[in-house]
Nucleic acid binder design. Sequence first.
DNA 1: CCGCCGTAGATTGTCAACAATCTACTGTCT
DNA 2: AGACAGTAGATTGTTGACAATCTACGGCGG
Lengths: 229, 229
Amino acid sequence: MIPLGASAPRATLADYVVQVIREKTATGELRPGEHLREAELATALGVSRGPVREALAILEAEGQVEIRRHRGAFVSVLTQRDVEEVHSLRAAVETLAAERAVTRLSPAHLAEMDRILQAMKVTPGSVEPQEAVRLDLAFHDVIYDAADHARLRRVWTSIRSQVAFFLHTRNVNFPDFPTVGFPEHHELRTVLSGGDAQAARSAVEKHMTGSYSRLRQLQLPAGSEDDRP
Amino acid sequence: MIPLGASAPRATLADYVVQVIREKTATGELRPGEHLREAELATALGVSRGPVREALAILEAEGQVEIRRHRGAFVSVLTQRDVEEVHSLRAAVETLAAERAVTRLSPAHLAEMDRILQAMKVTPGSVEPQEAVRLDLAFHDVIYDAADHARLRRVWTSIRSQVAFFLHTRNVNFPDFPTVGFPEHHELRTVLSGGDAQAARSAVEKHMTGSYSRLRQLQLPAGSEDDRP
DNA sequence: CCGCCGTAGATTGTCAACAATCTACTGTCT
DNA sequence: AGACAGTAGATTGTTGACAATCTACGGCGG
């Protein structure tokens, strides 16, 4: 479940809350625009408001939630503009990640990739959308892990659950994707293990472009971010 | 002082603490590896430990400080490796920022750039290093502001004070830089206002490469991150 | 009937105290 | 003398309570 080389230097209650909220926003259980009440979260998770506040502050720094003074935290609403932002940022950082990964891929990384590809391949087309998303993200986790770049990984985790949300909604709306997932990622693996940094950049760029074109087909709120009652 | 279009949707004590610590790390007043005691900070800033904890959690999410369970927060030590990380990440995001900026630069942005360039030019070579850093960063702030990309700006603010620290140390060690600052940034302005996205990418890439080669001359801790007593 | 103002409830921002854990020092044993 | 265990102090993690602020509802006036 934990990406790979992620250590746990700080296992505090606040981190636990962060993790829970990240997962719930990724799966869509916490919908964009939803009001996150501190006391509510605290009792639901069996902790006090202190750690919850810390967690919300962290999530705000990552852009996952929006905090308004004396009004509370709201799950960030994802507009068409956000799709574009997340995509362009992801393309920028993931090309760098790929470039670095080609010279740093260990046998363990390759094995992990193959394991994930195997799972992508064997699962029939009618796989649960959530599982397809999990595999997709896991594959890219390996790339970032191989890149061995702490700040790059931080950026990735900051957009990761938003990417997850996009992929999830798309998989639900266009159930044909899981069949496309395998060949695309398999090609990525081939290029990455090839050792050509420039080729890796191009491959990721292409992968991102394809991913974006599919994402654009989604119907998302277009304009401003006022969805709350 | 505030970059440009930065609004203040949340002016809480925690944000105040974050801002103070950012500044103090940028100027080097808070040295890498230093132990940040919550109670100490709280009394020094005239607030309680609650906001301080929130602030430290935010700064940890941005990688500015490192928190160890039951041991506290330490200002992240910047090794040669960190110089490389910050540089590569900055290059990746700033090329994107420049690409977007060329089609979004408003007259106000250009005026702001010119104002900064003017200041860079008129100040004689023996300007205070701190002022030179301020101008340098301010110039790039304008680029990110023109890029109009919330997530991109977040990444920038997360590495901004580390960049500031690097620039500061370099200006102190190599006092000739302030004379190079003007022409380099002037060229950037010219290309950005030209309207060619690809040219803007290349220009920023070149600017970054030059910046990195100068940064590498610094003597920084090379290996692991244990500098504390 | 519609709009404005005031109040009550709810929610967040902040604080001070308690509990858990770590670090450093001291004393003892080999 | 050197090394190890035990203890005291300091520091962080967490909690519950208090104060400031916002939202929603109801009454009043036009």
